[in-house]
Design a protein around this nucleic acid. Sequence first.
DNA 1: AACCGAAGCAACCGCCCACGA
DNA 2: ATCGTGGGCGGTTGCTTCGGT
Length: 351
Amino acid sequence: MGRSPCCDGEAGVKKGPWTPEEDKLLVDYIQEKGHGSWRRLPKLAGLNRCGKSCRLRWTNYLRPDIKRGRFTDDEEKLIIHLHSLLGNKWSSIATKLPGRTDNEIKNYWNTHLRKKLLGMGIDPVTHRPRTDLSLLAGLPGLLAAAGNFGGAGSATGAWDMNALRLQADAAKFQLLQGLVRALTTAAVPAPAPGMDNLMALLAASSGGQSGMNNGGQHGVDQSMLLQQCQWDGMNNLPALTNSAPASGMHNISGMFDGFGAGDGLSSTELGCHGGASGSNVTVDAVAPPRPMVANDQECNNNGGGGVSCEQTPASSPFDGLESLNLMDDLNTDGSWKDLLEQMSWLNSSEL
DNA sequence: AACCGAAGCAACCGCCCACGA
DNA sequence: ATCGTGGGCGGTTGCTTCGGT
C-alpha cells in the first residue's frame, strides 16, 4: 500500500527554495495553459521540479488571489473560532478566509495563535480553559476582582464587564465562566462550606433581578446571562442540566469571545440572542444579534451580509462549546458537592 | 560587532481518498 | 472488486530572520 512519492525516482529533481526564475516559468506556464496534470507540468514548463512541488508552490504562493501580509484581528478570531469547531482541518478553515492558504493558516496557528491561547490559559487543542495548578492558583485574584459583580460597586446590581475586564485576565475569566455555568445549571443544593464568597459573587443567579439594567451602558442583564448559562446543549453535563430550563437557549460562549483574545470585549462579539424575551446583553453598545454557534459555512459567508446562521445541533460534531466544558475536567459525576470538593482551593483563606 | 537561542515560515514528506480503468 | 494514479491534506523539517546579551 501507499504509493511512492511523486518525486521518487526522479533523479536530479531540485528541492528547496524556489528561485524567481522558477516562479516565473511556473506562473507563465499556468497562466497560458493551466496546470493540467501536475505530474507532467514540470517537464512541459521546463522546470526541474516534481509536480507536487509545483502544485504546492502555485497553490500556496503564486496564485494571483493569494493575500499576503499580517492576519487581521478579525481573521485571527475567525481562525480561532473555526479551529474550535473544525480542529486541524486547515483546508476547511482556509475556505472561510479568502486569499489565505491552509499552509499559511496552519503556520500562523502553530507560531502565533497556539501560543496566544496557551498564554491565556486556554488549551489550543480542546479550546477549554486549562485547569492546571498555575491557573487555578490565580483564581482568588479573579474573585477579588469580581467584587464588581453586582457588589457594592454596582448600584444597579449589574455585572460590570468593563471593570472585570480590567481586573481579571482572560484565562481566569474563562475559569469563572465555567463556574457560572455549573452553578446556574445545577439543581441547587446547599452551598458547601467555604463557598460564601463564590456564592455571593454569583448571588444574582438566585433571580429577582430580571429585566433590570436594560439601559445600562456597561451592564449585563443578569437574568439573560444566567439563562444563557443554562443552554441545554451542554451535553457533557447530564446531571447538572437535569433541572435546567432548556427552551430557546443558545450559549454564552460567544458572549465571551474576544475576551480571551486580550483585546477586550467588542459589542459584536458580545451580541447574544435572548430568545423570546428579546432582551439583549448590553456591553459598551447595543450589539447586533449574532448566533453563538452556527453553521460555519453560512456564518462565514460574509460577503453579502444578511446570511442567516443556523444553530448547530448540540449533537453535531461541530459543537463549538468545548470552551465551556470546564466542568468536564473538574467534575466527574455531575455532583455539585463533588465539584466543590474537587475545587477545594476555593476554601482557601486567600478568598 | 559578534554570538546564540528563539521565532517564523517556506517547503517537504508521507499518508489518505477519490476516481477511472 | 481490485489496482494504479492524481491530487489533497496534516504534520514536520530545516533554513532564515529576529532579538537579546
